[in-house]
Design a protein around this nucleic acid. Structure first.
Length: 899
DNA sequence: TAATCTACGTA
DNA sequence: CGTACGTAGATTAC
């Protein structure tokens, strides 16, 4: 498109960004690091639209430097009384400036002047140079600049809709031509600038006067002739009007770094925008740039996907070739090991093996092993001095166990290493880590030259699959070097070597063992729960004389709130909550039988689901093999799934009947449960070094009673049940970042009362308060928290603009060192227990870990020895300022083994 | 079919 | 408006 007349687009950056800030919901626009981006997104979106629609040759954006300007010098009250600019907004201005840089758009600021003055100066220069000018601003002062060559684009709704303020449009809207808009504004005043006008005079009256007396000067000169209340007011507020007129005049001759003619817009930089939009997590804007402003693109989109993993020389080993390869390439060096197969706790197999060292890869199929291969493989695999690095080594351990392979010498598991570096990633997949830490791509090699050199087999063989597995081995090899170095710089390499890697082996063993299930008992339970659930459904339908799905919160809401007209409960995103607490409170108010039936149904249905899940996961060996996940919980805890054996009911009698389905197996005589008592409170006492709390643990009396007696200033014997309950809730809540409001909800008391309780508590246990404060302060300063053993958790949200995110991060910061230290201690305890059992040649064994509890199965003759061993090893797992107490119980099932 | 919401079990 | 998880069914979005 050829343009005869150059066209300059000018934008008031602050004003448009501020509009966007209020137009777009901040909740929907924030990055994973907590940066709010609603204003930046709205601004960028607006800019793209305007550039497309107006097709300018020149562009500039002006920003205010601060609220202070020559106007505040002349009139200190100027713009006073405005609400403080929210931090969530301020932090987005630099983002917008980065967007402008990436889009090749110049931006200007000038100390002592407002953005409007910059725009007025540029518009004036442009007009003199024969430009057309468009000014995009939400500030009405800009209307004074409108003329035949200058149009203001004024936002009507948000920033997506702009109205073209030409001279005719200004005149139609305000009744005066644009060059007299200032006169009108002087009379009417500008509330947002704290410039009061003449009381009782709005735009209509002002326009009438300006027309009648030929401008503001005429109005002032003829003020005596104007009749009525309005005339009186004008005379009384003459000085305001004159001042307004002086202040609202935009300066058209400020000295700028660039003149209008130097603001040519060359186009947007594809690489820069792609990189920036990725950081800001703007998913669609790059596409919009391409489709809407494609002809103004500079450069190609940056290659965002990393280059592939470079594959080294790959040798496909035939039968009888492994021993030679190992001795030639795999001695005195680190070997990346990747295996392919079917992996499951208690089963599986290995179909292919790939090995990688610097510059060399090998692939082999264990099914093709001859005697020499087998011997070489087993010797190398079991050799603790043959250094191996593996990704998710537990799979290898699962598969190795039934094959009778011994595995030693694993110095790094890249998933565990990455978890210790950043424990909050969603995935620790090899592909993710390769991209993140090597800046390369694991996926199939596309480029011809990157193809591996295949040696030894024709292309129709296992070439492709072998290359893929070999690439994984190389990736692990390269990744391990990077991750270990990073860990060492955190002093966290010992956590990998002495904690996570050995724990991984213990977990693999526990998973492989599984725990015996009493299928008949569980089946009976399932049937019984099913019958009770069916009964509850019948009762519920009868109570409301209508069939409905009790599992559907939506239908439940219709019945309760629409049909029965019950009082509304707390809001959820999509309606009103029907959770158990709300239903119970509704029942207390209405005593409607449907509520009792629903609650009963919920209870029994949940139990039934748990039992059904357990039954479905009983393996052929009659045992349940859970999977413990070592890289899921950001605090360092384990998690359990398929099935989750860390959330088996225990609080109710019906729930405990499920625990009776976990039983001791043949060859053993009892299940043994071993709990740390109050481990998190003990860690809190240790970390805070609060003398009172430490003392409370050392009295040997009930902890909560002792603490309550201090808080309430009574003898321990005089602490009543309610006092103890409150203190117990408070103590536990502290480690979660409990607020006074939360505590009041928990205890069913008023927030003020909860506040008072907290104050009393902290008066007696000031060390706890100091500790909790210092944890958050330090985390904010360093960016991460640390457990007693140096396990880090990064919390970037501690500096988020978003209050909700920030406060959530603060609570996480309070909790992470406590929960995490407890997790570390339990991991150490598991290692010590496992080692002591082995050292003493005992057959009793670990089966489960439930955060602060271990479940073992023991033989009758080992029972005494194992109890003393476990007590000793768990208690000695860490040395704290208070003792680590362990309680132990035995039984033929998990419930009766509880104590 | 996949993602999200609501609800609820554990430490 | 108390942390950390996993699972399930219903519902909604694609």
């Amino acid at each position: 498109m050829t343009q005869t007349v150059p066209r300059l687009l000018l934008i008031d950056g602050h004003s448009m960004a501020y509009r966007a800030f209020f137009a777009l919901p901040a909740e929907n626009f924030s990055t994973t690091t907590g940066q709010t981006t609603n204003a930046a997104y709205g601004f960028a979106s607006m800019l793209i639209n305007v550039l497309r629609d107006e097709d300018p040759t020149h562009v500039a954006v002006a920003f205010d430097v601060s609220r202070a300007s020559f106007r505040t010098e002349q009139y200190p009250e100027y713009k006073e009384g405005r609400a403080a600019t929210p931090d969530e907004f301020k932090s987005q201005i630099p983002l917008i400036q980065q967007i402008l840089d990436a889009m090749g758009v110049g931006w200007l600021t000038l100390e002592g002047y407002e953005a409007d003055d910059i725009l007025a100066t540029l518009a004036t220069q442009a007009t003199e140079a024969g430009f057309e000018t468009l000014i995009c601003s939400g500030d009405r002062d800009a209307l004074q600049l409108v003329n035949e060559q200058v149009t203001v684009l004024y936002p009507v709704k948000g920033v997506s809709e702009l109205s073209r303020m030409t001279p005719a449009a200004v005149e139609e809207k305000y009744g005066v031509p644009p060059q007299r808009y200032r006169d009108l504004a002087a009379l009417v005043g500008e509330k947002s600038d704290n410039l009061p006008g003449v009381p009782g005079v709005g735009p209509k009256t002002a326009a009438k006067w300006i027309t009648a007396y030929d401008g503001l000067a005429g109005v002032i000169a003829s003020a005596d002739q104007i009749k009525g209340k309005a005339g009186e007011n004008l005379r009384a507020h003459m000085s305001d009007v004159i001042r307004n007129g002086q202040l609202n005049k935009l300066v058209t001759d400020v000295v700028l770094a660039k003149s209008a003619g130097e603001l040519r817009w060359e186009g947007w930089d594809a690489t820069a925008t792609a990189e920036l939009f990725q950081v800001l997590e703007f998913v669609t804007l790059q596409d919009r740039l391409r489709t809407q402003l494609g002809q103004r693109q500079i450069g190609d989109i940056a290659e965002v996907s990393p280059v592939p993993v470079v594959t080294a020389r790959l040798k496909l080993l035939g039968t009888g070739e492994l021993a030679a390869w190992l001795s030639e390439h795999a001695t005195d060096t680190t070997v990346g090991l990747a295996v392919e197969g079917r992996f499951a706790a208690g089963g599986g197999g290995i179909d292919a093996i790939a090995l990688a060292v610097e510059g060399e890869e090998a692939w082999c199929d264990p099914a093709a092993f001859d005697g020499s291969d087998e011997a070489a493989w087993l010797a190398w695999l079991a050799d603790a001095d043959a250094v191996k690095v593996v990704h998710e080594a537990k799979q290898l351990l699962w598969a190795a166990a039934p094959l009778g392979w011994k595995v030693a010498g694993i110095t790094c598991d890249t998933a565990l290493a990455a978890y210790l570096i950043r424990p909050d990633l969603r995935s620790y997949g090899l592909d993710v880590l390769v991209e993140r830490y090597l800046g390369r791509q694991l996926g199939p090699v596309v480029e011809e030259e990157a193809q591996p050199t295949l040696v030894g087999l024709d292309e129709s063989g296992p070439g492709e699959a072998a290359a893929t597995l070999a690439r994984r081995a190389t990736a692990v090899h390269d990744l391990a070097a990077v991750l270990v170095k990073e860990l060492e710089s955190h002093n966290a390499d010992e956590l990998l070597t002495d904690m996570e890697l050995p724990v991984q082996r213990v977990l693999a063993d526990m998973e492989t063992r599984g725990i015996a299930a009493d299928v008949a008992h569980l089946s009976d339970l399932a049937a019984s729960f099913a019958a009770q659930a069916a009964e509850a459904v019948t009762d519920a339908h009868a109570a409301v004389d209508q069939q409905f799905n009790l599992r559907s919160p939506k239908q439940l809401q219709e019945i309760l709130f629409d049909k029965l007209g019950m009082p509304k409960t707390k809001r959820t995103k999509t309606g009103y909550t029907t959770d158990a607490e709300a239903l119970a409170s509704l029942f207390a108010k209405t005593e409607h039988p449907v509520l009792a039936a629903i609650l009963r149904h919920r209870d029994v249905e949940k139990l039934k689901q748990t039992v059904d899940g357990l039954l479905a996961s009983v393996a052929d060996d009659g045992r349940i093999h859970t999977t413990f996940h070592q890289t899921v919980a950001a605090t360092g805890r384990l998690s359990s799934s398929d099935p989750n054996l860390q959330n088996i009911p225990v609080r109710t009698e019906a729930g405990r009947r499920i625990r009776r389905g976990f039983v001791v197996s043949q060859g053993f005589d009892a299940l043994m449960t071993c709990d740390y008592s109050q481990i998190e409170m003990r860690i809190m006492a240790h970390l805070s070094a609060d003398a009172g709390l430490i003392e409370a643990f050392n009295t040997g009396e009930d902890l909560h009673t002792t603490v309550a007696s201090r808080v309430f200033g009574v003898e321990p014997g005089a602490v009543d049940a309610e006092q103890r309950r409150r203190i117990k809730a408070m103590s536990y809540g502290l480690a979660y970042g409990l607020s006074a409001y939360g505590l009041s909800q928990q205890l069913g008391i008023k927030p003020e009362e909860a506040r008072g309780l907290m104050d009393e508590y902290f008066d007696r246990f000031g060390g706890v308060r100091d500790y909790l404060r210092s944890v958050v302060d330090e985390a904010r300063r360093k960016g991460y928290t640390e457990t007693m053993f140096g396990r880090r958790r990064y919390l970037p949200d501690l500096s988020s603009d978003n209050r909700q995110r920030r406060e959530m991060a603060e609570r996480a910061a309070l909790n992470a060192p406590i929960q995490g230290s407890a997790a570390d201690i339990m991991k150490i305890a598991m290692l010590r227990v496992e080692r002591a059992l082995a050292d003493q040649g005992l057959t009793s064994r670990l089966l489960l870990q439930v955060h602060d509890e271990l479940v073992l199965e023991v033989t009758g003759d080992e029972r005494v020895a194992v109890e003393s061993l476990v007590r000793e090893q768990m208690s000695a797992a860490a040395t704290l300022a208070v003792p680590l107490e362990v309680s132990v119980g035995f039984g033929t099932d998990w419930d009766t083994a509880a104590h």
